[in-house]
Deep mutational scan, measured.
Amino acid sequence: MQIFVKGLTGKTTTLEVEPSDTIENVKAKIQDKTGLPPDQQRLIFAGKQLEDGRTLSDYNIQKESTLHIVWR
């Protein structure tokens, strides 16, 4: 499925993911596209910070959802 990651600059990155992907895995995909290391990424969805060990489905993140990224 496709999801979007929007940064503070307003730039949006598209990712191809599975609902079973962990947040850690998603951060690795973001690094592949942007070069930003996972330890500098904070992902937010529906006002919650996403924890590395959880999956996208744990947070009810579905296709075409938009996550927000904040740099540490």
Rank of each mutant, 00 (worst) to 15 (best):
S20H: 12
K11Y: 13
G35F: 04
K48S: 08
M1V: 05
T22G: 03
M1E: 02
L15C: 02
F4K: 06
I30E: 00
I44M: 14
I69H: 03
G10F: 09
G35Q: 04
K29P: 00
Q49A: 12
V17N: 00
W71E: 11
K63N: 15
E18G: 07
I3T: 01
L36M: 13
D39L: 09
L15W: 03
W71C: 09
R42Y: 13
S20E: 10
N25L: 13
K48A: 10
T9C: 12
E64S: 10
F45N: 02
L50N: 00
Y59V: 02
E16V: 12
S65Y: 08
F45C: 03
R54H: 12
F4A: 03
P19I: 09
T13H: 15
D21Q: 04
E16S: 12
R72M: 14
D58H: 10
K6W: 07
H68M: 12
P38R: 14
V70K: 08
W71L: 15
Q49I: 15
G47D: 05
L56A: 02
V26E: 00
T55A: 06
I44N: 05
K48M: 13
L56M: 05
N25Q: 13
A46F: 09
T13K: 05
V5Y: 03
L43P: 01
L8F: 13
P37K: 11
K11C: 11
S57G: 11
L56Q: 00
Q40L: 11
E16F: 13
D21E: 10
Q40H: 12
N60V: 04
L50P: 01
A46R: 12
H68G: 04
W71F: 11
Q2H: 12
E24P: 03
L43M: 03
L15T: 01
Q62W: 07
G53I: 06
Q41S: 07
N25F: 12
L15V: 08
S20N: 14
T14H: 05
E24S: 12
T14N: 06
V17R: 00
L36F: 10
G53V: 06
K48V: 15
L56R: 01
L67E: 00
I3A: 01
Q31N: 07
T14K: 08
Q49H: 12
Q40K: 13
Q49K: 09
A28H: 12
A46C: 07
I23Y: 01
L36K: 05
A28I: 13
R54F: 13
T66D: 03
Q40Y: 10
T13V: 15
V5H: 01
E24K: 11
G7W: 15
Q31D: 03
Q40S: 11
D32I: 13
F45K: 02
E18R: 14
I61C: 01
I3K: 00
Q62E: 11
L15K: 00
E16W: 15
E64K: 07
S57W: 08
D58T: 04
N60S: 08
M1C: 03
T22W: 05
G10H: 09
S20Y: 10
F45E: 01
R42S: 11
T66R: 05
K27Q: 02
G53L: 08
K63I: 06
K63D: 14
T22V: 04
K33G: 04
V26L: 13
I44G: 03
Q2R: 14
E64W: 15
L67F: 03
I44C: 10
F45T: 02
N60Y: 06
G47A: 04
R42E: 12
T22F: 08
